[in-house]
Design a binder for these strands. Sequence first.
DNA 1: ACTATACGTAGGAAATTTCCTACATATCAA
DNA 2: TTGATATGTAGGAAATTTCCTACGTATAGT
Lengths: 126, 126
Amino acid sequence: MTSDHVFAALASPVRRRLLRLLLDEGAQPAGRLAVRFDMSRPSVSEHLKVLKDAGLVAETRMGRERHYRLEAAPLMEIREWLTPYERFWRERLSALGTLLDEMDDLDPDRDGFEDPNERNGEQPHD
Amino acid sequence: MTSDHVFAALASPVRRRLLRLLLDEGAQPAGRLAVRFDMSRPSVSEHLKVLKDAGLVAETRMGRERHYRLEAAPLMEIREWLTPYERFWRERLSALGTLLDEMDDLDPDRDGFEDPNERNGEQPHD
DNA sequence: ACTATACGTAGGAAATTTCCTACATATCAA
DNA sequence: TTGATATGTAGGAAATTTCCTACGTATAGT
């Protein structure tokens, strides 16, 4: 449910690959997914459970099969978490500006901020 | 080094909070970071090591202190991994179209694709 | 009613992660 | 030099993750 579950689910390469398979090839029964992995079928089933608990896949019962489909919505939380770091990429890596420069044109007020490093004062926080 | 390390590093709420602190407040010595956590100082030090191994922080020795600073570049890999899922958000969630619609105007050829679900054919893939 | 298929779950071994308390090292301050 | 400060590392306990082999359940086909 929480965003913690989503981050934790993405920590496994097997689970990321499962998501990619569902993205590229669409909803599939568990067994057809499992044969792609060098791993027992029940183990893949357990990975699917982790993804389901994170809200990243949903299952639909089709006769004796269970079709799993991608639920990409929770990935938005990851993207949102990532957003505040983007300005850092622009500071450090000026070389790949293509996409970011396009966004610049759209949202020009992202310029002119202070570098949060190089700071040294007391931290009255917390 | 690999992108696996980055995903794994982000799986811990403690490490995500460390990154956020460095983003919001700038580079800091390990001890000042540690007191923010309800956890022993050496444990925070170990979390910093995981972040360092993932390339997400770098350290600079300042006398007897070690200042840790954010290295946001590896987060780009996460964002890139996320990108192909974005069209799914637009299918399912039409409500938040603001940003995505702006990107639409820039990159109009993202329209008109088939739903990867609702497929049923054989999978010659491996 | 049978048998085969598709799948999840139980139970457990092995590996990994997370956290702790010492402890060692390096620097600063007197 | 001596003592305090800042920090990483060693070693280990506890929790969690990952994977396996049975095994149980439900559906489909005959």
